[in-house]
Every structure is written in structure tokens, then in C-alpha cells.
Design a protein around this nucleic acid. Structure first.
Length: 792
DNA sequence: TCTCCTACGTTACGTTGTGG
DNA sequence: CCACAACGTAACGTAGGAGA
């Protein structure tokens, strides 16, 4: 985009997005256009591809919009036409709901239909036959045996009868030297008799002049020769994720040498590789890096993007950053703590959904200004709904896509980092409404100041790197940013990018994961150095050169970190580069800016209330094509009530039993090294859930939710019809697990059900006579052992 | 549930000394 | 020269852990 174009455009608002492709919209039909649009090479989302179709939301009169790359011409006329048409279009049948679940009923149905079409029933059945040829198998076995080293177990030595031998001595050390002297002085025969050695030994002593013979053993026939090692090395270079089996196959293919997979694995990480002049290889976490990511072309594009961005900045435009982030509600916390040797479980309710996507817009003025939650992925329609809704609140706008392979230049990625750090979704959540509530809370915790810091981090640190054409490595950026935020006590922990498999994803993980990674002290130093380096690149030249003005530099940095955008607007570019500003001026500016920010916040609040009014107004419309509501059907409520009834009834029955559940519970809790896991809390299918809890760590059985299960529970609820004895026996046999049942009323407290060829132990307890609970081992040394357990 | 890697114990081979 | 024993080590086999 040329400078003239900027002057012509002079937008009050700019929007940055990701893109690496030129996009144009035309009069295609809504359905057909989606299929034909190809995605960008590095894109994982619609936002990254930058492709969109305006038709889908604009009804019968499609709008024309041309959005170009940052390094190509920018069609401002068509953009203006598009935005004006949006404003003039009064009959747009869409609605954007702030922080609410939004989906298009039509689009959803269309998607389901498409998916149904792809599912085709398998035709016929496939039967595999194998002819058993014992002779062929034997021959094959012989051939295999030929290739395997090692002498047969029944060797000749064992087969032949043991002959009586004359017993001679074997001389070692000093004795051998003395025997050599004896041979020289007295001769072989006398020496043989004197030392009781054989003629062979005596000759050897003379041959080696009394020195120690060579140690037995030596180099063997080596399968993994230098050529084989080179093949292994090359195969690893060709495919970094190659398995041991594949390496062994490659060796067999190239050299007709059979080696075991473990040999291949062992060899490539051994010192022997170094002997052949090859590097040692180890198995490590793999990271994905795109070839083009740091290519010269990409770096040029970054510079073009920054130039364009600076041009917008100089116009005083409010830059709004947009991006989407997936919120997999089940996978926010990957790591937890548990006793050594035991898995860490975080038990939770069954979730009705797993994936929610949040499209977000941020700006330096207001922080997070707009969030749209979508259940599932972001389609073209949803994105257009979002951007159209956003554009309606703006006076004028221009779209600017970030350059290719440079998603980290969009500060919103770092805001997402803060968002996911804030996030703490309780395990009791199971419905969309609850999740959205917590996700919303995560965004609402992000302060405008934090957003400004993210933006300044990008514009002041990363832009410097990009302008110097340095490689941009996500891992480094994560550390720098985390250190940057830590200075102001904003803790942000970024996930290892390999978790997500893409370098473009700035996801989060708990702290312990960071410790496991290579965050050593040396790295910290590098980070701080790099940090310092980055800071200096963005300062005015005069500040960099004059060391005496260190305090002013600090003030400048501090000022920048406050995120005073207004100041940037008021300070012209010439003023920045010309010289140093006085301390008083800066202080005054700060005060005035604080007032301004307060004013802006007030205005934002007012604006929000206006939006709320608009929302309420639109809610009243009946003919909305896009609806925002959480579906909770009457059927679900009815099931819930029934379950609660059953639960209540069970509890009453439980209480009325002659055995004291409290005493039983105390007894089970007194077993050292174990913890009670009560999967259901009520009698019924508790036995099966307890077993499942022990075997799998979770309770997948939902007996009560099935019709057959209901009948079964009703049957066993009758007095005397339920014992559990045979069920436990059956479970023990089927699972091949020894079931140990702890029971207070039993004299020795233990029942043991052991099947043949038991593979493990399941420990459960009984409360109140008929309620089973799982006993989870919490220490490595348990009270129960096979030795002290009696068998029933 | 399956695959892969790693550590560690076992197996079998090559070399050398020794007896016959 | 052959056969065997001792020894060191390459290669094999397997359990267990981690992760998808």
C-alpha cells in the first residue's frame, strides 16, 4: 500500500487479521463458494486463510470486497463501498451476541446433512483367510534362525561325555614371570613338573616371555558396520520420527542384514556412532517448523506489513486486532500431581461438548472489546457474523492482514495466552452454558492494561526483530513475553508449542511443565539479554546513543509499558526522533492521559450499555436466522428429577440398614495407604462403578441411565435379592484380577477372590452392608499383600 | 489399546588359552 | 590340529513408562 493510499483512506479504525492470500469475493452461491476456496498453506483457520464470502450474510444482493496482502495493492475503494453498504443495509438479518453462544440453525443443519452424506454404510463383509502350512512355517523359522546369532542351547559340550583330564595349573601374574625365569635356567621339563603346568602352557610362557597372555575375547562379527551405521544415520535424517522397526527394515533392504529393532534404537544413541564419525541421536519431543517460516521472502513480507502498519498508526487510527482461538474445554490443564507410580486423575462430569472457539477483538483503548463464542469450529458464516457485527459499531475501517507465517505479530495471540492462564474451569461443568460462563470470566479478567502491554510487546520488540530480518522462533518469544510480563507481576506461562504441533499456536500449560523444559539459568540470561536488545531497537536514536539519559530512558520505557496510546497519538513522529522529552512533560502527559483513559472507559461503559439495549431489542425479533440460546430440553430435566428421586430413595434405604455405614467408612479410612473413592455415592451399580474406577480410573458405566439398568436396580433393591458375591466372582474371572474386598463385619476384614492366572489386584470396600466403594492406593506401601490375604 | 522407546537382563558368538 | 573353557561383548528379548 502506498503512502498516497493511506492519505486517501485515512481510516479512523483499522483491523488486522492473519492472511497470506489475496482474496476477493464475487457472486458465488453460498454453498458452492466454501468448497472451492482453498486454504492457505499455514492456515488452520478461516482467519488465517483470509478467505471469506460476503454473500452468505448479505442476502440476495452480494457485496464486492477485495482484501489484499500487505505487500500488494489495497483496494480502498471497494472496501469503502463495502463498508458503506454495510452501514446503509438496514435489513441485515443477523445478530451478534456478546459473550453468548451463537450458531446458525440453517448452517448447522446444512453441515449435519453434509456430514451424513459422507458416512456410507460398508457394503458386504470382508473375511480374511489364512492357510496354515506347518512345514512352510518350519522352513521359515529355520531361515530366521539362520540369521540369528548365538549357539544352540544344547551344544556339543553338553552332549558329549565328560572326559577325565589331567589337572594342570594356570599361571598368572608374578608366577608366570618366575616360571619364565625357571624355563631359561632349568629348562621346560623341570619347570613343567615344578609348577604342574602343561607343555602348551610352558611353551606359551616362553613364547610370550613370561608376560601376561592377551585377554580372552575380542572383536566379534559385527552386524552394524560403518555402512549400516551410515544407513541408520541417513534414515533418521530423512525421517526424524522413524521407528526402530523401520530403521531395521531399511538396513535389511539396503544391506540384507537383519538387526533387531532394539539394536537399531540402541546403536544410534551409543558412542559407537561417534567411532564411525556420525552423530549420536536421542529421542526427544518433536517440534513442527514450517520451511517457509523464516525464509527471506517471509521476512520481506514482514517488513512490508510493519511499514503498512506504521502508516496506519501515524494516521491516529484505533487498531483493532482480531483472531480466533480454540477452547478445548477438556484439555486446559494437562498436568497434575499424584503419588509416585500412580496416575493423576481429575474426575469430571461428562461434557456435552468439547470444543468451543472464541473469536475475539481487542484494541489498545478498550482491551477486549468483542468476543463471540462458537460451539465447534469457525465457519465462514460465523466469522462474517462476527466481523459484520463489529463493523457496525465503527465509523470507518480498513482491513489489514498480517503477513504470512507471522501470526506472532498479532498481539491477540499473547492476549489469548493471558486468557488461558486466567482460565479455571471446574470439573462440575458439563453443559455449554457453564463453560461459556467460565470462558467469559476468563476474558473479563483481562485488563485493558494487559492488552496494551501485549500490543506494545509486539510493536516495540517483535517489530524490531522483524525489521532486522531475524528469525522468529515461537519458543523464544514465549519466554521473552513471559519475562516481559513477569516484570510487572503478570504471570503468563506458555505451552510448549509442540503440544499443539504448530508453531503458530501460543497455548498455555501449567508451571511444572515449564520447569521440565529447558528453562535453565543460562537461558534466562539469554532472555534478559535478548529482551534488552529488543528494547533498544525501538527507542529513538538519540536515546540509544546518550548514556547519560538513562533515567529518561527508563521513564520512556515505563511510559510505554503503561500503554499510553493517547500519548503516542499526540506525539508526532518527528518529535519522537528529534530529541529527548523532558521529565515534567512526560509526567504531565501521564496525568492528562490517565484522565483521558478514564473518560474513554466511561464512554466504553456507556457504549456497552447501549449495546445491551440494542441486544434486548433484537432479542424480541422472532424471525432471527441466528439464534443464541442454550438448549436444555424438558427430557433432560425429567431424567434429572428421576435420578434425584432414585438417589434420595437409595439414601433412605441405606440409612435404615442395621449396619452402621459411618463405622464402615471409618474402618475403610483407617486402612493405611488407601483412599475411598465413592464413584456413585448411592447403592445400586456401585459395585460395577467401583471396579471400573479401579481398573480404568474412571467410571464409564451408566447403568442407571439405561432401561435395562433401571429394571436391574429395581430387582436388586428388593430385600435379599442382592448379594454381590457371584458378581464379584464373575468379575474376577472375566477381568483375570484378584478382587480383595474389605469388610468391617468380617472377622479378619478381608475377602479375596482370586481367579487362575491373576494379572493384578482390585481392591474394593463395602459400606453399610451393600454399598461398594473403590479403595485407591495412595502410597506405594499398602497394607494388603498377597501373603497376608486369605483366600475364600 | 496400541505403539514406541529405554533400561536391563539374557543369549549366543568370536577370540584366545589350554589340554589332548 | 581339534575341542573345549573362559571371557567380553554384540545382539536379542522383555518389562515398564510415556504418549497418542
Amino acid at each position: 500500500m502506498s503512502s498516497n493510499a493511506i492519505e486517501e483512506c485515512t481510516p479512523h479504525s483499522g483491523i488486522t487479521m492473519k492472511s497470506n492470500q489475496q482474496v476477493s469475493t464475487n457472486n458465488q452461491l453460498p454453498g458452492s463458494s466454501y468448497a472451492s476456496q482453498s486454504r492457505a498453506v499455514n492456515s488452520g483457520s478461516i482467519l488465517e486463510s483470509g478467505s471469506m464470502n460476503i454473500n452468505s450474510i448479505q442476502g440476495n444482493q452480494p457485496h464486492q470486497l477485495l482484501i489484499s496482502n500487505s505487500n500488494q495493492s489495497f483496494d480502498t475503494d471497494s472496501l469503502h463501498a463495502f463498508t458503506q453498504s454495510l452501514q446503509s443495509e438496514q435489513q441485515v438479518s443477523i445478530e451478534i451476541f456478546y459473550n453468548q453462544r451463537v450458531y446458525s440453525a440453517d448452517a448447522l443443519q446444512q453441515s449435519i446433512n453434509q456430514q451424513c452424506e459422507t458416512i456410507k454404510q460398508a457394503e458386504g463383509s470382508l473375511t480374511l483367510h489364512r492357510t496354515v502350512d506347518l512345514e512352510a512355517d518350519k522352513m521359515q523359522l529355520k531361515q530366521i534362525k539362520k540369521g540369528i546369532r548365538g549357539k544352540p542351547k544344547n551344544g556339543k559340550a553338553e552332549q558329549k561325555e565328560i572326559r577325565q583330564r589331567k589337572k594342570y595349573n594356570s599361571l598368572k601374574g608374578r608366577d608366570r614371570e618366575i616360571a619364565y625365569e625357571d624355563i631359561q635356567l632349568l629348562g621346560i621339563e623341570i619347570t613343567m613338573k615344578r609348577w604342574n603346568i602343561s607343555i602348551r602352557t610352558a611353551e606359551n610362557i616362553r613364547k610370550f616371555q613370561g608376560k601376561q597372555p592377551k585377554p580372552r575375547g575380542g572383536p566379534h562379527h559385527i552386524k552394524v558396520t560403518k555402512q549400516v551405521a551410515q544407513t541408520l544415520c541417513q534414515s533418521v535424517i530423512d525421517n526424524v520420527s522413524i521407528s526402530g522397526t523401520a530403521m531395521a527394515e531399511k538396513v535389511k533392504q539396503d544391506h540384507n542384514i537383519i538387526i533387531h529393532e532394539s539394536t537399531a534404537n540402541e546403536f544410534i544413541r551409543s558412542e559407537k556412532m561417534l567411532k564411525f564419525g556420525l552423530p549420536k541421536f536421542s529421542f526427544k519431543r518433536m517440534r513442527v517448523r514450517e520451511k517457509e517460516r523464516n525464509s527471506d521472502e517471509t521476512k520481506e513480507k514482514r517488513i512490508n506489513y510493519i511499514t503498512l502498519f506504521r502508516g496506519y498508526e501515524l494516521t491516529g487510527a484505533e487498531i483493532i486486532y482480531i483472531d480466533e482461538t480454540p477452547c478445548n474445554v477438556l484439555e486446559f490443564k494437562h498436568y497434575g500431581r499424584a503419588p509416585v507410580g500412580q496416575p493423576a486423575f481429575r474426575e469430571r462430569k461428562k461434557a456435552s461438548i468439547t470444543n468451543i472457539t472464541a473469536i475475539t477483538a481487542i484494541s489498545a483503548f478498550s482491551g477486549v472489546i468483542h468476543v463471540l463464542f462458537v460451539v465447534g469450529g469457525v465457519t465462514h458464516e460465523v466469522f462474517l457474523l462476527f466481523i459484520n457485527g463489529l463493523l457496525q459499531h465503527l465509523q470507518s475501517r480498513a482491513l489489514l492482514f498480517t503477513s504470512a507465517y507471522s501470526c506472532e505479530l498479532n498481539p491477540i495471540e499473547y492476549v489469548f495466552g493471558i486468557f488461558k492462564t486466567n482460565l479455571n474451569i471446574p470439573t462440575r461443568c458439563s453443559i455449554v452454558k457453564d463453560y461459556i460462563q467460565h470462558l467469559q470470566a476468563g476474558f473479563s479478567q483481562i485488563t485493558p492494561r494487559q492488552v496494551r502491554r501485549c500490543i506494545l510487546f509486539v510493536t516495540h520488540q517483535l517489530f524490531g526483530k522483524a525489521l532486522r530480518k531475524e528469525d522468529i522462533q515461537i519458543r523464544d518469544l514465549q519466554r521473552i513475553f513471559a519475562a516481559h510480563m513477569k516484570e510487572e507481576r503478570d504471570i503468563v506461562n506458555f505451552a510448549d508449542e509442540s503440544e499443539s504441533g504448530s508453531e503458530c499456536n501460543l497455548e498455555l500449560i501449567p508451571k511444572q511443565k515449564i520447569k521440565r523444559s529447558n528453562c535453565e539459568e543460562q537461558d534466562e540470561e539469554q532472555i534478559s539479554n535478548q529482551n534488552q536488545e529488543d528494547k533498544t531497537t525501538i527507542f529513538p536514536e538519540s536515546l540509544q546513543k546518550d548514556n547519560s539519559n538513562e533515567s529518561q530512558i527508563n521513564n520512556f520505557v515505563k511510559d510505554k509499558r503503561i500503554g499510553n496510546i493517547e500519548q503516542q497519538e499526540n506525539t508526532s513522529d518527528s518529535q519522537r526522533t528529534k530529541g529527548i522529552r523532558k521529565q515534567d512533560d512526560i509526567t504531565n502527559e501521564n496525568q492528562s492521559n490517565v484522565e483521558k483513559i478514564e473518560k474513554i472507559n466511561r464512554l466504553t461503559q456507556e457504549n456497552k450499555s447501549n449495546i445491551e439495549k440494542v441486544k434486548e431489542k433484537h432479542f424480541e425479533k422472532e424471525n432471527l436466522t441466528i439464534e443464541a440460546k442454550i438448549i436444555e430440553t424438558d427430557e433432560e430435566n425429567r431424567q434429572k428429577e428421576e435420578l434425584e428421586e432414585i438417589q434420595q430413595r437409595r439414601k433412605e434405604e441405606w440409612r435404615s440398614t442395621p449396619t452402621d455405614p459411618n463405622q464402615d467408612r471409618q474402618f475403610l479410612e483407617s486402612i493405611i495407604g488407601y483412599q475411598i473413592q465413592d464413584p456413585t455415592g448411592i447403592p445400586g451399580d456401585c459395585l460395577f462403578n467401583s471396579i471400573a474406577c479401579q481398573v480404568r480410573g474412571v467410571c464409564p458405566i451408566k447403568l442407571r441411565n439405561t432401561k435395562a439398568g433401571q429394571e436391574y436396580l429395581q430387582t436388586i433393591a428388593q430385600q435379599g435379592s442382592w448379594d454381590g458375591e457371584w458378581e464379584i466372582r464373575a468379575i474376577s474371572v472375566i477381568l483375570k484380577q484378584t478382587v480383595i474386598l474389605q469388610c468391617r463385619t468380617k472377622k479378619d476384614g478381608i475377602y479375596v477372590y482370586e481367579p487362575e492366572k491373576s494379572k493384578g489386584v482390585i481392591e474394593i470396600g463395602v459400606i453399610g452392608g451393600f454399598h461398594y466403594v473403590a479403595l485407591r492406593k495412595i502410597l506405594t506401601s499398602g497394607k494388603i499383600t498377597r501373603q497376608n490375604a486369605k483366600f475364600v
